[in-house]
Amino acid sequence: MSWQWVVDGVSYVLFAASGFFFLAGSVGLVRFPDVYTRLHALTKSDNLGLGLAVAGLSLQSGSWIVALKLLLTWMIVIVAGATACYLVANSARDSEIEPWTGEGR
């Protein structure tokens, strides 16, 4: 049993989890009742999906500098995602899109 075996095993788990969170984010985007709840699904689930993919890819690349570059890419997506999320939520509030509160379910 070699070291590579462990690295590959962890990578499989990370990739599977990554795929799950990307799918769950899209399912939330389709199922959730209003623009605000959909934003929750998108911002959090997809960023986690990308983070897990980046972790798995870093393990597979076997290079510190590539791992750092992937981490940098992810950090940019997080900062951009959080900012975009605020801007979109804010513009939805400004254009008076009413948040869903569970009435009429």
């Binding site: 799950f20 969170f21 769950a24 984010g25 399912v27 939330g28 199922r31 959730f32 009742p33 709840t37 929750h40 699904a41 959090k44 689930s45 960023n47 986690l48 999906g49 869903w100 569970g102």
Partner: peptide
């Protein structure tokens, strides 16, 4: 945060 919202999205009852 990701786990929480992902589970809410895929659960049939969709607790919100």
């Amino acid at each position: 945060g990701g786990v929480d919202v992902a589970l809410r999205a895929i659960r049939p009852s969709m607790p919100l």
